[in-house]
Each structure stands twice: as structure tokens, then as C-alpha cells.
Lab assay of single mutants.
Amino acid sequence: MGSVRTNRYSIVSSEEDGMKLATMAVANGFGNGKSKVHTRQQCRSRFVKKDGHCNVQFINVGEKGQRYLADIFTTCVDIRWRWMLVIFCLAFVLSWLFFGCVFWLIALLHGDLDTDYKDDDDKSKVSKACVSEVNSFTAAFLFSIETQTTIGYGFRCVTDECPIAVFMVVFQSIVGCIIDAFIIGAVMAKMAKPKKRNETLVFSHNAVIAMRDGKLCLMWRVGNLRKSHLVEAHVRAQLLKSRITSEGEYIPLDQIDINVGFDSGIDRIFLVSPITIVHEIDEDSPLYDLSKQDIDNADFEIVVILEGMVEATAMTTQCRSSYLANEILWGHRYEPVLFEEKHYYKVDYSRFHKTYEVPNTPLCSARDLAEKKYILSNANSFCYENEVALTSKEEEEDSENGVPESTSTDSPPGIDLHNQASVPLEPRPLRRESEIGSRR
């Protein structure tokens, strides 16, 4: 089982795998120059863009038009607004034209077009017409509009002379109601789609790998820009990579689940303020055997998904993003964004995407760390350097704002901070800030 798991979770494809794949392509008759073999020097295209759209195009789909027309309502909801407006206008105009032609044909076959009612006051002739005051196609078209929109100006009306005319008036009224219901329903469904809710759900630009509770963890940050909550919010993550099976089958995008606390339930989050999602790199993680150097040379993509129900409509929305291997910062942490004021908490989104480097973060893999092949620094050293990194950030910001350097908390000259780390230190809580992250 261990060997199978290692093969499945191998992220960085070796040169031997690339040569094996190329040999397979030639042997199977696919070596026509169009096949692409992804190596370390040639990274694959992003499968999920940063804005959440999937970078996929469908080609050679059989009976595409028929399949889309069979699900016309979903098609109308998914198309762009400009095409929705075109369909909206065409549906009414074509129905008016169709029934206008029908009423014109009825008048033509009944002989109503030969009668001039402007110079004739004989009401008996008017009563013999199928539709009064309809003696041309324009008049028939206007009567069709008046019937379907129930305008009723009063000059044109159907008589009991022709039952077919009466039937067409009733039929057009029913068709008009159906068109109204369909168009209004599609427009309302399109307006109520929770897709735009994703514009106020954000992911951090970069993911980070750092120590948390004595273990290497992959972390990324999510935030909600609205005050309205995302009900039943939960997160998922998958690692996408290519691999070759033991039988020699090439899988271009193998999807591997990344555990973010599904078993323990901590994948469900209360997204009021930005939260750091934590994936513990343990023996079940696809990143277990990867060191910093392996991450730098790897070719994979981590897709992160945030799902929840919109509070206003109770409709489920899904926000997506992805991180390539070069977008994962090893040995970094996110800057705090949640600050405790006197009577409330304040979230500073200008710090949302910012990170700071944490010294002495192990550069080895989580496996080597678990097997004690890498000796961690003293816990006080880690905490102290973590505090120094934050303090230096604040000093830089104070210097930019014009604060005198004498007010900063610099260490005395001639003292090495790293050498001082081995000395037991008193706890130094942050002056006014605390970061709330997901705790395992």
C-alpha cells in the first residue's frame, strides 16, 4: 500500500517518465508532432483561472445545437444578457408577425380586404367582416399587437362572423401568456443567479507553507467582502497533476483530494472575517514527500473551492481559484488583518494578500521532518523571529508614515537576534492585533 500511495502522490514527473511517455506515443502511432509532453521546463496551462473560470474549450460535440435547444431554459439562463435581450425582442416580434399574417390571411380569404370602410357607412358590411377595420397587412399586424398586449384601442375587434378568427384570438392570448411567463422566468432566474456573489468572495493571491502546531501546513486565505453571511460555508481543495499509471496509461489531469478537515468538520467555516484555511501535510497528503526545492521545480495546480448558500436567496454559490506551484510561498505567513478595537473588531483588507517571511522554516519535506531528519529550532526562537518579522513590518510602515526611528523597538546594537533566540524570552503579545485562523 505504501508503494502504491507514493506512486499515486508523486508530484514532480521525472525525466524517465517523460521519455517513457514519448516512447509510448511513438510506439502507439501518436508521434505526429502534435502531442505535447509536459516536462519541468514546460509548465501546463492553468486549468482553473484565478477568477474561477475553467480554462476549457469543448470541440467536436455531436448534436450540440439539439442538446442546447432541448434544455432551452438553461440555455437562456446561461447566455449573455445581450443575447437574452435579442431573444426577448424576437420572441414578441415574431409572435406578433405570425398572428398578424394569420389574421391577414383570414381577412384575405373572407374577402374583407376588398371592402373600403372609410367611404361605406353600411354597418351590415362591417358585421360581415371577420375582424372589423382590418383591410391590410398593417392593420392585421396592429390588431395582433393589440390582442397579445391587451391594449385594446377599440377600432379593431373580432366579430362572430368567422369562428376561426375567434379561435385565433383565444389562441394568441394563451401563447402570449406562455411567452411572458417564459421570458420573465428566465430573466428573473438569470438575475437571481448567485454567480455575481463570487465577486465579493476573495482568495489570497498566494498560498503559503509554514509551520503550525509543530507541523508543516499548506495555507491559503479566504474572505467575504459583504456583511451578509454565506450560510453553510465549506471549503474543498484538489491537486491536479499528470501521472502515468503502473500499466503505462497517461492521465493528463489526475485529481487528488486535499484534506482540509472534512473528517473532523473544520472544513465548515464561519466566514465573517478572513480565515486562513489549513491543510496539514501528513502522510496522507500529496505534498508529504515534497521539499522546498521540489515545490520550486514541480508542475501541478491546486484548485480551491468555497461553497455556501447566499443568505438573501438561499441559492448555492461556488467560488473557485487555483494556485500553481510557483504561487506557493515556502516559509511565509499571512499578515494579520483582524484588529481588536474598543467595542468592535476591524478588518483591514489592505493586508489581505500580504505575507511575511518566517525565518528558520524547515526546507525539507514533511516526511523528513516526521522522521527527525531535520532538527527544528527552539520553539522560543521560532516565536521570537516570528515577532521580529512582524515588528520589522510595523517599523517599515512607521518610517513610511514619517514616525521617528527613535520610537521604534530596535534591538541594541551589536546583538545578533538569531543568537539571542536560544535565550528564554518573556511572551510578547501583539500590541493591538490578533489573527483569527482556522485551528486544527
Score class of each variant (00 low, 15 high):
251 I>T: 14
354 K>M: 12
330 W>R: 00
152 G>D: 01
329 L>N: 04
117 Y>C: 00
404 P>L: 09
172 Q>L: 02
210 A>I: 05
238 Q>A: 12
24 M>V: 07
306 L>S: 01
108 L>N: 15
249 E>Y: 06
199 E>I: 05
103 F>D: 00
173 S>N: 06
158 V>R: 03
192 A>D: 05
418 H>S: 09
54 C>D: 14
235 V>F: 07
257 D>Q: 09
308 G>K: 09
335 E>M: 05
172 Q>H: 05
346 K>H: 12
57 Q>A: 11
305 I>S: 12
378 N>D: 09
365 S>I: 00
211 M>R: 02
413 P>V: 10
249 E>R: 09
32 N>R: 10
237 A>R: 00
334 Y>I: 02
417 L>M: 06
427 P>T: 12
314 A>S: 12
285 S>K: 02
410 D>H: 06
77 V>C: 13
101 C>F: 06
49 K>E: 04
95 S>C: 15
229 H>P: 12
65 G>R: 13
101 C>D: 00
79 I>A: 06
26 V>Y: 09
304 V>F: 04
323 Y>P: 00
129 A>H: 03
281 I>T: 01
235 V>T: 05
166 V>C: 03
421 A>P: 09
23 T>R: 07
23 T>N: 11
407 T>H: 10
275 I>L: 11
413 P>R: 05
134 V>D: 00
200 T>C: 14
141 F>R: 01
424 P>V: 13
50 K>E: 07
300 F>A: 00
157 C>S: 10
329 L>I: 10
39 T>V: 08
273 S>R: 11
420 Q>I: 13
66 Q>P: 07
203 F>R: 01
239 L>H: 03
405 E>I: 10
96 W>A: 09
133 E>C: 05
333 R>N: 15
409 T>W: 09
7 N>K: 14
384 Y>M: 15
2 G>H: 06
337 V>R: 00
184 I>P: 05
158 V>C: 01
122 D>E: 04
44 R>D: 14
125 K>L: 15
27 A>R: 13
272 V>T: 09
181 A>L: 14
317 T>R: 13
52 G>C: 01
247 E>V: 11
89 C>N: 13
419 N>A: 13
278 V>E: 02
71 D>H: 10
80 R>V: 05
56 V>D: 03
278 V>K: 06
210 A>Y: 06
87 I>S: 15
393 K>P: 14
6 T>R: 13
36 K>S: 13
435 E>R: 08
267 D>T: 07
434 S>V: 11
292 K>N: 05
133 E>T: 04
187 V>P: 05
308 G>A: 10
69 L>V: 12
260 V>G: 00
379 A>V: 09
249 E>N: 12
218 L>G: 01
76 C>A: 11
426 E>P: 07
108 L>P: 02
157 C>W: 04
133 E>R: 03
431 R>F: 14
77 V>Q: 05
105 L>Y: 04
366 A>T: 01
329 L>E: 06
391 T>A: 05
84 M>Q: 06
52 G>P: 00
208 V>C: 12
388 V>K: 08
76 C>Y: 05
21 L>K: 12
89 C>L: 13
258 I>C: 03
384 Y>S: 09
104 W>N: 03
334 Y>V: 03
300 F>I: 06
336 P>Y: 10
69 L>H: 13
351 R>F: 12
167 F>E: 01
178 I>K: 02
76 C>F: 14
121 D>F: 15
314 A>L: 09
385 E>M: 06
231 V>T: 10
165 A>M: 03
255 Q>N: 10
410 D>T: 08
226 R>G: 13
417 L>C: 12
327 E>W: 02
374 Y>P: 12
329 L>W: 02
354 K>S: 08
93 V>S: 05
399 S>F: 13
114 D>S: 12
243 R>Y: 14
257 D>T: 06
322 S>V: 00
282 D>A: 10
265 G>D: 03
68 Y>S: 14
184 I>W: 05
159 T>E: 02
150 T>A: 07
224 N>C: 07
138 T>Y: 03
279 H>W: 00
377 S>I: 07
318 Q>F: 12
291 S>L: 01
26 V>F: 03
87 I>Y: 14
356 Y>R: 15
55 N>S: 13
64 K>R: 10
313 T>R: 09
365 S>V: 00
389 A>F: 10
300 F>H: 01
380 N>K: 04
19 M>C: 10
427 P>Y: 08
363 L>F: 12
205 H>M: 07
359 P>C: 08
69 L>W: 12
45 S>T: 11
6 T>Q: 13
337 V>S: 06
115 T>W: 04
267 D>V: 03
390 L>K: 11
265 G>T: 14
357 E>Y: 04
116 D>Y: 09
432 R>C: 13
156 R>Y: 03
383 C>H: 13
62 G>H: 12
360 N>M: 12
69 L>R: 11
118 K>R: 13
343 H>R: 12
9 Y>F: 15
431 R>H: 14
130 C>Q: 03
284 D>M: 13
240 L>W: 09
139 A>H: 05
132 S>C: 02
242 S>V: 13
234 H>A: 10
81 W>Y: 06
420 Q>Y: 10
419 N>V: 12
36 K>N: 04
28 N>I: 03
276 T>S: 11
67 R>A: 06
284 D>A: 14
338 L>Q: 08
15 E>L: 06
50 K>C: 02
402 G>V: 04
119 D>W: 09
377 S>N: 09
214 G>T: 15
426 E>N: 09
50 K>Q: 14
77 V>H: 08
283 E>H: 13
280 E>S: 09
360 N>D: 11
213 D>I: 01
236 R>A: 09
89 C>H: 03
340 E>R: 05
174 I>L: 14
